[in-house]
Computed example of a mutant assay.
Amino acid sequence: MAVHLQMVEEVEQGLITTDEQAWARMAELAALDLPEPIQPFAAYVGSFLTTVGEMAAAILAVGPIDAYTAKSCADTAFEKAGTSGYTGVEDGKQDAFRHAYWNVLMSRDIGTSQAKKVADIHEDYNPGTALANEMDLWNNSVGRNIWSAYPSSSDDSNNALVTETKSKLNAGLMKYIKNGAIVWTNA
Protein backbone atom coordinates (compact mmCIF):
# COMPACT_ATOMS: atom_id res chain seq x y z
CA MET A 1 0.00 0.00 0.00
CA ALA A 2 2.94 2.35 0.53
CA VAL A 3 3.36 2.62 -3.25
CA HIS A 4 -0.29 3.57 -3.64
CA LEU A 5 -0.13 6.17 -0.88
CA GLN A 6 2.94 7.74 -2.48
CA MET A 7 1.13 7.77 -5.83
CA VAL A 8 -1.90 9.53 -4.31
CA GLU A 9 0.40 12.27 -3.01
CA GLU A 10 2.12 12.69 -6.37
CA VAL A 11 -1.21 12.90 -8.24
CA GLU A 12 -2.51 15.44 -5.69
CA GLN A 13 0.64 17.53 -6.20
CA GLY A 14 0.25 17.45 -9.97
CA LEU A 15 3.53 15.57 -10.46
CA ILE A 16 1.70 12.79 -12.32
CA THR A 17 -0.98 13.81 -14.78
CA THR A 18 -1.45 10.86 -17.15
CA ASP A 19 -2.11 7.16 -16.71
CA GLU A 20 1.08 6.41 -18.64
CA GLN A 21 3.13 8.43 -16.16
CA ALA A 22 1.30 6.72 -13.30
CA TRP A 23 2.04 3.20 -14.58
CA ALA A 24 5.72 4.06 -15.04
CA ARG A 25 5.99 5.66 -11.58
CA MET A 26 4.16 2.73 -9.99
CA ALA A 27 6.69 0.30 -11.46
CA GLU A 28 9.54 2.52 -10.27
CA LEU A 29 8.17 2.70 -6.71
CA ALA A 30 7.38 -1.01 -6.62
CA ALA A 31 11.01 -1.75 -7.49
CA LEU A 32 12.08 0.19 -4.37
CA ASP A 33 10.32 -2.44 -2.23
CA LEU A 34 8.78 0.11 0.13
CA PRO A 35 7.44 -1.31 3.41
CA GLU A 36 3.75 -2.06 3.51
CA PRO A 37 1.81 -1.00 6.60
CA ILE A 38 -0.17 -3.80 8.21
CA GLN A 39 -3.90 -3.10 7.95
CA PRO A 40 -7.00 -5.10 8.66
CA PHE A 41 -8.84 -6.16 5.50
CA ALA A 42 -11.88 -3.93 5.79
CA ALA A 43 -10.85 -1.23 8.23
CA TYR A 44 -11.24 2.46 7.60
CA VAL A 45 -7.64 3.50 8.06
CA GLY A 46 -8.36 7.15 7.41
CA SER A 47 -10.84 6.61 4.60
CA PHE A 48 -11.80 4.35 1.74
CA LEU A 49 -9.51 2.48 -0.65
CA THR A 50 -7.27 1.34 2.17
CA THR A 51 -6.40 -2.20 1.10
CA VAL A 52 -4.04 -3.10 -1.69
CA GLY A 53 -6.65 -5.39 -3.27
CA GLU A 54 -9.29 -2.67 -3.30
CA MET A 55 -6.89 -0.09 -4.72
CA ALA A 56 -5.65 -2.54 -7.37
CA ALA A 57 -9.25 -3.31 -8.42
CA ALA A 58 -9.99 0.42 -8.65
CA ILE A 59 -6.86 1.00 -10.75
CA LEU A 60 -7.86 -1.78 -13.14
CA ALA A 61 -11.43 -0.45 -13.38
CA VAL A 62 -10.80 3.28 -13.85
CA GLY A 63 -7.05 3.69 -14.39
CA PRO A 64 -4.41 4.95 -11.99
CA ILE A 65 -5.12 8.69 -12.15
CA ASP A 66 -8.85 8.33 -11.46
CA ALA A 67 -8.22 5.68 -8.76
CA TYR A 68 -5.73 7.91 -6.97
CA THR A 69 -8.03 10.89 -7.35
CA ALA A 70 -10.83 8.79 -5.83
CA LYS A 71 -8.55 7.97 -2.88
CA SER A 72 -7.85 11.67 -2.39
CA CYS A 73 -11.61 12.34 -2.48
CA ALA A 74 -12.09 9.58 0.10
CA ASP A 75 -9.57 11.17 2.43
CA THR A 76 -11.31 14.54 2.11
CA ALA A 77 -14.73 12.97 2.72
CA PHE A 78 -13.47 11.13 5.79
CA GLU A 79 -12.02 14.34 7.21
CA LYS A 80 -15.15 16.40 6.52
CA ALA A 81 -17.41 13.70 7.95
CA GLY A 82 -15.43 13.79 11.19
CA THR A 83 -16.10 17.50 11.56
CA SER A 84 -19.66 17.43 10.16
CA GLY A 85 -21.40 17.43 13.51
CA TYR A 86 -23.15 14.15 12.73
CA THR A 87 -22.75 11.08 14.92
CA GLY A 88 -22.43 7.45 13.92
CA VAL A 89 -19.08 6.80 12.24
CA GLU A 90 -20.36 3.36 11.28
CA ASP A 91 -23.93 3.05 10.02
CA GLY A 92 -25.00 6.46 11.43
CA LYS A 93 -25.62 9.84 9.89
CA GLN A 94 -21.88 10.57 9.76
CA ASP A 95 -21.42 7.39 7.71
CA ALA A 96 -24.29 8.42 5.41
CA PHE A 97 -22.74 11.86 4.93
CA ARG A 98 -19.27 10.38 4.27
CA HIS A 99 -20.52 8.03 1.56
CA ALA A 100 -22.62 10.67 -0.19
CA TYR A 101 -19.96 13.39 0.02
CA TRP A 102 -17.26 11.02 -1.26
CA ASN A 103 -19.43 10.27 -4.30
CA VAL A 104 -20.14 13.99 -4.84
CA LEU A 105 -16.40 14.70 -4.88
CA MET A 106 -15.59 11.74 -7.12
CA SER A 107 -18.37 12.69 -9.53
CA ARG A 108 -16.97 16.21 -9.76
CA ASP A 109 -13.36 15.06 -10.15
CA ILE A 110 -13.54 11.84 -12.21
CA GLY A 111 -17.13 11.73 -13.50
CA THR A 112 -20.20 9.92 -12.23
CA SER A 113 -19.56 6.74 -14.20
CA GLN A 114 -16.04 6.35 -12.81
CA ALA A 115 -17.30 7.32 -9.34
CA LYS A 116 -19.88 4.52 -9.45
CA LYS A 117 -17.24 1.98 -10.45
CA VAL A 118 -14.95 2.95 -7.58
CA ALA A 119 -17.78 3.11 -5.03
CA ASP A 120 -19.09 -0.31 -6.10
CA ILE A 121 -15.58 -1.76 -5.80
CA HIS A 122 -15.35 -0.32 -2.31
CA GLU A 123 -18.58 -2.05 -1.31
CA ASP A 124 -17.41 -5.33 -2.87
CA TYR A 125 -14.14 -5.24 -0.90
CA ASN A 126 -15.76 -4.14 2.36
CA PRO A 127 -18.88 -6.23 2.74
CA GLY A 128 -20.90 -5.41 5.80
CA THR A 129 -24.30 -6.55 6.90
CA ALA A 130 -27.09 -6.59 4.33
CA LEU A 131 -28.54 -3.44 5.94
CA ALA A 132 -25.19 -1.63 5.93
CA ASN A 133 -24.60 -2.52 2.28
CA GLU A 134 -28.08 -1.33 1.31
CA MET A 135 -27.51 1.92 3.19
CA ASP A 136 -24.08 2.51 1.66
CA LEU A 137 -25.20 1.81 -1.90
CA TRP A 138 -28.16 4.18 -1.46
CA ASN A 139 -26.02 7.00 -0.05
CA ASN A 140 -23.35 6.51 -2.73
CA SER A 141 -26.07 6.91 -5.35
CA VAL A 142 -27.47 10.02 -3.63
CA GLY A 143 -24.01 11.59 -3.74
CA ARG A 144 -23.67 10.99 -7.47
CA ASN A 145 -27.18 12.36 -7.99
CA ILE A 146 -26.35 15.47 -5.97
CA TRP A 147 -23.50 16.21 -8.35
CA SER A 148 -25.54 15.37 -11.47
CA ALA A 149 -28.24 17.85 -10.41
CA TYR A 150 -25.80 20.49 -9.19
CA PRO A 151 -25.96 23.62 -11.37
CA SER A 152 -22.79 24.01 -13.43
CA SER A 153 -22.73 27.73 -12.70
CA SER A 154 -22.68 27.13 -8.92
CA ASP A 155 -19.69 27.19 -6.60
CA ASP A 156 -18.21 23.68 -6.73
CA SER A 157 -15.68 24.16 -3.93
CA ASN A 158 -15.42 21.48 -1.28
CA ASN A 159 -17.12 23.71 1.29
CA ALA A 160 -20.05 24.47 -1.02
CA LEU A 161 -20.45 20.76 -1.72
CA VAL A 162 -20.37 19.97 2.02
CA THR A 163 -23.25 22.42 2.46
CA GLU A 164 -25.19 20.87 -0.42
CA THR A 165 -24.62 17.33 0.88
CA LYS A 166 -25.68 18.31 4.41
CA SER A 167 -28.84 19.93 3.06
CA LYS A 168 -29.82 16.69 1.32
CA LEU A 169 -29.05 14.64 4.43
CA ASN A 170 -31.05 17.01 6.65
CA ALA A 171 -33.94 16.87 4.17
CA GLY A 172 -34.08 13.12 4.69
CA LEU A 173 -32.86 11.97 1.28
CA MET A 174 -30.23 9.63 2.72
CA LYS A 175 -30.46 6.55 4.89
CA TYR A 176 -28.82 5.33 8.08
CA ILE A 177 -29.31 2.49 10.54
CA LYS A 178 -31.17 3.19 13.76
CA ASN A 179 -32.20 0.46 16.22
CA GLY A 180 -31.41 -2.23 13.67
CA ALA A 181 -33.49 -0.75 10.85
CA ILE A 182 -32.76 1.50 7.89
CA VAL A 183 -34.41 4.89 8.33
CA TRP A 184 -34.36 8.19 6.44
CA THR A 185 -31.91 10.77 7.73
CA ASN A 186 -34.63 13.17 8.80
CA ALA A 187 -36.00 10.56 11.23
Rank of each mutant, 00 (worst) to 15 (best):
R144A: 08
W147V: 00
A160Y: 02
V142I: 12
E123G: 08
I182C: 09
K116G: 07
A132M: 11
D124Q: 14
A160W: 05
K116M: 09
P151I: 06
N179K: 13
E134K: 14
H122N: 05
K168L: 04
N140A: 04
T163I: 14
N140L: 06
D124Y: 13
Q114N: 15
I121T: 07
A171M: 04
A132C: 10
S113R: 15
N133H: 12
M135K: 14
D155Q: 09
W138L: 09
V118E: 03
G128L: 15
N139F: 02
E134L: 08
E134P: 02
L169R: 00
N170R: 09
L173W: 00
N139G: 05
S113E: 13
D136T: 06
E164Y: 05
E123Q: 10
L173F: 02
G128T: 12
H122L: 11
K166M: 04
W147M: 05
L137C: 05
Y176K: 09
A115I: 08
D109G: 07
K116R: 15
E164D: 03
S157T: 14
S154C: 07
A115S: 11
K168M: 03
N179A: 11
R144G: 01
I121N: 03
N170K: 13
T129I: 11
M174I: 02
Q114C: 10
I121R: 06
L161R: 06
A132R: 15
A171S: 11
I182H: 03
S167T: 11
K117E: 03
N159V: 13
G172I: 01
A181L: 15
L161T: 02
Y125P: 00
D109Q: 15
N139C: 03
D120S: 13
I110M: 10
D136Q: 10
A115D: 01
K175Y: 09
G172A: 07
V162W: 01
K117P: 02
Y176S: 09
N159R: 15
G172M: 02
T112D: 09
S153I: 12
D136N: 14
S113H: 14
N179H: 12
K117M: 13
Y150M: 06
T112R: 13
S153V: 12
E164K: 14
K175G: 01
R144K: 08
I110Q: 03
Q114S: 14
Q114W: 06
I182N: 02
L131W: 07
S113F: 13
K117I: 09
K116F: 04
G111D: 02
G143I: 04
R108C: 11
T129V: 10
A181P: 01
A160S: 10
K166I: 01
K116S: 09
E123C: 09
N133L: 14
E134M: 08
S153W: 08
T165L: 03
S152K: 15
G180P: 05
A132Y: 08
T165E: 00
A181W: 13
R108F: 12
S153M: 09
